[in-house]
Computed example of a mutant assay.
Amino acid sequence: MKNVKTLALAATAVAAMSGNAFAADRSDLHGSDYKWMQFNAMYSIGEKPENPASGDQHNYLEMEFGGRSGIFDLYGYVDVFNLANESSNHGDKNPGTGKSKLFMKFAPRVSIDALTGKDLSFGPVQEVYFSTLFNWDGLIGGDANGQNVGVNSTFWGVGADVNVPWLGKTGMNLYAYYDMNAKEWNGYQFSANWFKPFYFFDNKSFLSFQGYIDYQFGADATDDLYVPKTSNGGNIFFGLYWHSDRYALGYGLKGFKDVYLLEDKGGLVGLESTGWSHYLSATYKF
């Protein structure tokens, strides 16, 4: 992590793994540049949506990365599911389902402050961005023509780093959603993410409270016979993590409400899209 001199600054830089940006040094466009990458070994229990008959428990490896370079702020990750390709794996991540083993999130933002050379901060708002978000995976089944279809979700909007009491700098973004498969705009999404170190040990390791919210709204509800859609829904993640310079261990509790706008237990498929899940993770930082 470039220009990190103390553990407190290191904690701030690690905050980027939840999407937070390092505020630009406006006197030197690249004066606050940094980058980071880490590998997370993850295990998920009860992730939604899930088939109530089989549940959903699976392992996966996540490569997570991010940083700041001039006007650009970046966060992203690539997930590889069911590493051993076990057919006994619960849920839709076993090799017999034909589902993709990969999922990718890519979230670049452009600092409007850095782009214009002006300080646009006001009140608790520290920096303003043009924000984008892209979600991609492989196969999710076939369309009406029998062609395999993957997730191609894009989000476009504005964002800010906001100083929230106790949490500190919190990344917030408001997007309009454009479905690349359907070639149409369909609703909006509000996202927020935070990283709060709150207890430091004598060996300079620390505990953090970290998490995020993704909430979609204003979408078109549909009464599909198999998988009906709602007009709003989302998820929230609360994580408790121990961090050292090189390693991290954590537990996360994630709540879902009609996630991906799938109506809970709706239609003939009857997927559960509302409820709680648990995540265990072990991290190595590069």
Score class of each variant (00 low, 15 high):
residue 83 L to Q: 09
residue 87 S to P: 07
residue 88 S to T: 15
residue 88 S to V: 08
residue 88 S to P: 10
residue 88 S to H: 13
residue 89 N to S: 15
residue 89 N to H: 12
residue 91 G to T: 01
residue 91 G to F: 01
residue 92 D to P: 02
residue 92 D to S: 03
residue 92 D to Q: 02
residue 94 N to H: 04
residue 95 P to I: 14
residue 95 P to D: 10
residue 95 P to E: 11
residue 96 G to E: 07
residue 97 T to M: 09
residue 97 T to Y: 06
residue 98 G to A: 11
residue 98 G to S: 08
residue 98 G to P: 07
residue 99 K to I: 03
residue 100 S to C: 04
residue 101 K to P: 13
residue 104 M to C: 13
residue 105 K to Y: 06
residue 106 F to Q: 00
residue 106 F to K: 00
residue 106 F to S: 00
residue 109 R to I: 03
residue 109 R to N: 15
residue 110 V to G: 04
residue 110 V to S: 05
residue 112 I to F: 05
residue 112 I to L: 14
residue 113 D to W: 02
residue 113 D to Y: 03
residue 115 L to A: 00
residue 117 G to Q: 11
residue 118 K to D: 09
residue 118 K to N: 14
residue 120 L to H: 06
residue 122 F to G: 03
residue 123 G to T: 00
residue 123 G to V: 00
residue 125 V to Q: 00
residue 126 Q to N: 08
residue 127 E to F: 04
residue 127 E to K: 09
residue 128 V to A: 13
residue 129 Y to V: 08
residue 130 F to M: 15
residue 132 T to R: 05
residue 136 W to A: 09
residue 137 D to K: 02
residue 138 G to E: 05
residue 139 L to M: 10
residue 139 L to E: 15
residue 140 I to N: 13
residue 141 G to Y: 10
residue 141 G to K: 07
residue 141 G to M: 08
residue 142 G to A: 13
residue 145 N to C: 03
residue 146 G to N: 06
residue 149 V to S: 07
residue 152 N to V: 08
residue 153 S to C: 00
residue 153 S to V: 04
residue 154 T to E: 14
residue 154 T to R: 12
residue 155 F to Q: 12
residue 156 W to L: 09
residue 157 G to S: 10
residue 158 V to C: 03
residue 158 V to D: 04
residue 160 A to T: 01
residue 160 A to V: 01
residue 161 D to M: 15
residue 163 N to F: 05
residue 164 V to M: 02
residue 164 V to D: 01
residue 167 L to T: 03
residue 169 K to A: 03
residue 170 T to Q: 03
residue 170 T to E: 01
residue 171 G to V: 07
residue 171 G to K: 14
residue 172 M to Q: 06
residue 175 Y to S: 11
residue 175 Y to G: 11
residue 175 Y to K: 13
residue 178 Y to M: 05
residue 183 K to W: 06
residue 183 K to T: 10
residue 184 E to M: 14
residue 184 E to I: 12
residue 185 W to A: 09
residue 185 W to G: 04
residue 186 N to T: 10
residue 186 N to R: 07
residue 186 N to C: 10
residue 186 N to Y: 10
residue 189 Q to C: 08
residue 190 F to T: 10
residue 190 F to Q: 08
residue 191 S to I: 03
residue 193 N to W: 12
residue 195 F to E: 07
residue 196 K to S: 14
residue 196 K to I: 07
residue 199 Y to C: 00
residue 200 F to W: 15
residue 200 F to L: 09
residue 200 F to N: 08
residue 201 F to S: 07
residue 202 D to V: 03
residue 204 K to W: 07
residue 204 K to M: 13
residue 208 S to P: 02
residue 208 S to C: 06
residue 209 F to S: 07
residue 210 Q to S: 14
residue 214 D to L: 12
residue 214 D to V: 05
residue 217 F to T: 08
residue 219 A to S: 15
residue 219 A to N: 13
residue 219 A to M: 10
residue 221 A to H: 04
residue 221 A to C: 06
residue 222 T to G: 03
residue 222 T to A: 01
